[in-house]
């Protein structure tokens, strides 16, 4: 419509964000590295790098390698632990001006519950993102969130404790992403993040050695776009079928 300034503001599970662009977990470093390159106030929100209960030193190097159409990487979620994070990093993220979504990771239900309890009652945090791709220490499984029941258990526990929206970041290596998403939403998640990096590995042809220090890692980069597009399509189609009467916001609703 002529003369009317169209807004791209979105309402995301109760969070009103000025733009729908969110900086994904890890891509904003520790909150200050992007400052010379971009203005983070212009994005809708910033997801912090994944934080665990205790400090983690991470994986051995080399931690990164280029591959066709992607990057394989493995940092072993190096992070200072939740206490040091709240002391040092969180204020920097908050000062950057964007809404802050804290990404939490862990290997047991207890770890997630304790992380959530530490994050409760902090007004500077807008939402929590639960990373489910870590190994499950309690049940001894390689990827915690790959099983729908376990993912629902973890996310449900976090969502029940949390007074702010909780987003579940779905692992890419799940047999049925729709089933997983359904279980997690039923358990109480306010939203889904689609999706985490798929597990990956590379071998250097010249030396017969893995390109990454911990041998296996994750794949990022343009190769993931079709995988993610399909996951978003399948999950959103299922949601529309499950709740046909809910008024799903579309671009036309807001502009028309």
């Amino acid at each position: 419509m002529a003369g009317v300034k169209r807004s791209i503001a979105v309402d995301l599970a109760g969070l009103s964000l000025p733009t729908p662009v969110i900086v994904a977990a890890g891509c904003a470093g520790t909150g200050r590295e992007l400052s010379g390159l971009t203005d983070t106030r212009r994005v809708g929100a910033v997801v912090t790098r994944s934080i665990t209960l205790r400090p983690r030193r991470g994986d051995p190097t080399p931690r990164i390698a280029e591959s066709p159409a992607g990057i394989t990487w493995a940092t072993g979620i190096q992070n200072p632990g939740i206490e040091a994070f709240i002391e040092e990093e969180l204020p920097r993220y908050v000062r950057s001006g964007a809404a802050v979504i804290v990404s939490i990771a862990g290997g047991s239900l207890e770890e997630f519950v304790r992380l959530t309890s530490v994050l409760q009652g902090r007004p500077e945090i807008s939402a929590i993102e639960v990373r489910l791709s870590e190994p499950d220490e309690e049940l001894d499984r390689p990827i915690l969130g790959a099983h729908a029941d376990r993912a629902a258990e973890i996310v449900g526990a976090v969502a029940r404790m949390s007074m702010i929206p909780v987003f579940a970041k779905l692992p890419a290596s799940t047999p049925d992403v729709v089933e997983l998403a359904r279980g997690i939403v039923r358990a109480g998640a306010h939203g889904l993040t689609l999706m985490d990096s798929p597990p990956a590995m590379g071998i250097e042809a010249a030396t017969f050695r893995p390109t990454l220090g911990p041998v296996t890692g994750w794949l990022s980069g343009p190769a993931l776009k079709p995988l993610t597009t399909r996951a978003v399509f399948e999950v959103s189609r299922d949601a529309r079928r499950a709740h046909p009467r809910r008024r799903w916001r579309s671009q036309r609703d807001r502009c028309g």
Partner: peptide, 25 residues
């Protein structure tokens, strides 16, 4: 060391360095 971004985002170019107070690395 193998580096991704060069300005601190990606945590891939890490080197183990002892702390000044000797309490680990």
């Amino acid at each position: 060391e193998r580096m991704g971004c060069g300005y601190g985002l990606c945590f891939t170019c890490v080197v183990p360095v002892a702390r000044k107070d000797g309490s680990g690395y």
